[in-house]
Computed example of a mutant assay.
Amino acid sequence: MAAAAAAVTAFHSYSPQEQQLQQQQAHSQQSTDTPQLSKKPKTLLHKHPLYTPVHSKLSLQFKEKILCLEVMGVDSGKALALNPSIHSTTLDSIHKIITFLQSKGILQQDLPRIIGMCPKILTSNINNELIPVFNFLSHDLNIPDHNFRKVINKCPRLLVSSVKDQLKPALFYLKRLGFKDLGALAYQDCVLLVSNVENTLMPKLDYLISLGFSKPEAVEMVLRCPGLFTFSLENNFKPKFDYFAREMKRDMSELKDFPQYFAFSLEKRIKPRHLECLENGVDISLPLLLKTTDEEFAELLNQHNNSRNM
């Protein structure tokens, strides 16, 4: 078994003498106001270097959960802040979830990132929440078992998304728009599956239509550049379109043909290159303006300047 699961198992493995000692300490704690846990109980835990800094008044069980998370490489403070329910869950429950994830191909080295991003996983119900997600990946997206790890690592939020209320409605909406490549949805654009249809996906499409594109044109744009569904309206779409329309004064057909425009940084790529073109009197297509490397872009400017001086 992987190190993380083994660590959790080890924390449960007390000898009869150790169990008796813990019972005596618990009985003693009930009869005095002084917490007995300040006297380090002689378990496997007390020898671990992370044990000492933990506050002495915390229960042994809670200390073990903190240590379990840290051994896995998870920031216990962040995990507890994002998911307070970890306080009340049992170490045995955490152990079962880790073991289940490993049975699905998730490796110990994957756990810090997966659980760090979605600590809610640690208090999920295996039968009612986690198993349905893997069934969805298998039955609805045709993902083979050996590729579960690839998909989950790409988007850990899948594990904390409701199949009924989130994943299936998103998949239905995307397929209705024309997303036919299930492999691409699973391995590249799976973040779209955890995006709310009414609050996230539809408003992005509606915004493109509000710019003057027809619905078929807007749909074609998101099919060509699925990332459009992930961009912020206020922080991405609006400022970039404003610059496109007011400063660049380019034709809307260019934006329709190259929706990837919205994927480039306004301050680091779009503005500086547009200004350089203005300074050099160069008019190049939107893809060449943004997709070329710095070296290629500089060469384009040099070629234009050389041809103008001939």
Rank of each mutant, 00 (worst) to 15 (best):
P216I: 04
K39I: 13
K168W: 06
L141G: 00
H27Q: 14
P216K: 03
F213V: 04
L69F: 11
F148L: 06
L300E: 12
N306W: 01
H304Y: 08
Y261P: 12
P239C: 10
N125V: 03
S59L: 15
C277M: 08
E276L: 12
T52F: 06
H27Y: 15
D283R: 10
I284K: 13
R250Q: 10
A298E: 13
S59H: 13
Q260K: 10
K57S: 11
L201F: 14
I106G: 12
C118H: 07
K249C: 06
C155S: 04
Y187N: 01
R176I: 02
H95Y: 13
P53G: 06
L44Y: 11
S28V: 09
K268C: 12
E220K: 02
E220W: 02
E276Y: 02
T200Q: 11
K291M: 08
L80C: 04
L208R: 07
D181S: 06
E18Y: 13
N309R: 09
M310V: 05
S76N: 10
R157L: 00
F134L: 11
S138W: 10
I143T: 02
P144Y: 06
S88Q: 07
L69I: 04
E247V: 11
Q61N: 09
H55D: 14
P119R: 04
L101T: 05
N280F: 02
Q30H: 03
H139Y: 05
T230L: 00
K47T: 10
K120N: 09
K154A: 00
L301D: 00
E295Q: 03
S162M: 02
D145C: 03
N306I: 02
S161M: 06
K204L: 02
K47W: 07
Q22N: 10
L82M: 10
V282E: 11
L174T: 08
L80V: 06
F264Y: 15
E299Y: 01
V219Y: 05
D145L: 07
Y243A: 07
K249M: 05
A6G: 12
H304T: 02
L69Q: 12
D145T: 15
F134Y: 14
L141A: 01
R224M: 11
S162D: 03
Q24K: 15
F213D: 09
L255I: 09
F258V: 09
K204D: 06
F241L: 12
R157H: 04
C155A: 03
V151G: 12
L255P: 05
D181T: 03
E279F: 10
F62V: 13
D33Y: 14
L266P: 02
L266M: 06
P272N: 05
E234N: 12
K47H: 08
Y187I: 00
Y173N: 01
V194P: 02
I86A: 10
V74L: 06
Q303A: 08
I284S: 04
M1C: 14
K256D: 03
V74Q: 08
R269M: 03
V197R: 11
F136E: 01
K96L: 14
A81Q: 14
P144M: 04
A170P: 00
P119M: 00
K204A: 14
F229Q: 04
N153I: 08
